[in-house]
Amino acid sequence: MSEIISVITNDGRNIVGVLKGFDQATNIILDESHERVFSTKEGVQQHVLGLYIIRGDNIGVIGELDEVLDASLDFSKLRAHPLKPVVH
């Protein structure tokens, strides 16, 4: 496994990294990961996390990232509202 994935958590975080493993409860292990923090005032900030484990019950959405498209984006010019947490 070496796919780059994007994970949106139930608390509204967007974490991108290399999928290293998962289990039957959808707990996942990401390597070389970083969190993308969106803002309406400044560009997207990327906080390095490194090796990161996300519990399956905290995952809202998982998707494979298109590396070519992702590399072509200028995150310093992107503006967006942060995601709100999931309310049950």
Rank of each mutant, 00 (worst) to 15 (best):
M1V: 13
M1L: 10
E3S: 12
I5Q: 02
S6Q: 13
S6W: 00
V7P: 02
V7R: 03
I8T: 15
T9H: 05
N10Q: 09
G12L: 07
G12S: 07
G12P: 05
R13E: 04
I15A: 01
I15F: 01
G17T: 08
K20R: 15
G21E: 09
G21N: 09
F22L: 14
F22I: 00
Q24K: 15
A25W: 10
T26G: 03
T26D: 09
L30Q: 04
S33N: 10
E35M: 08
E35P: 03
R36D: 09
R36T: 01
V37L: 13
F38W: 13
S39T: 09
E42P: 00
Q45S: 09
Q46A: 11
V48I: 03
V48M: 10
V48E: 08
G50L: 04
G50Y: 09
G50C: 06
L51T: 13
L51K: 15
I54R: 01
R55Y: 06
G56S: 03
I59H: 09
G60N: 10
G60S: 14
V61E: 08
I62G: 03
G63Q: 12
E64F: 11
E64K: 15
E64D: 08
L65C: 06
L65R: 06
L65M: 13
D66R: 05
V68T: 14
V68P: 00
L69G: 14
L69Y: 14
D70V: 03
D70G: 04
S72D: 06
L73G: 02
F75T: 11
F75H: 13
F75K: 12
S76N: 14
K77F: 01
L78I: 15
P82F: 11
L83Q: 09
L83N: 07
L83H: 07
K84F: 00
P85I: 03
H88S: 10
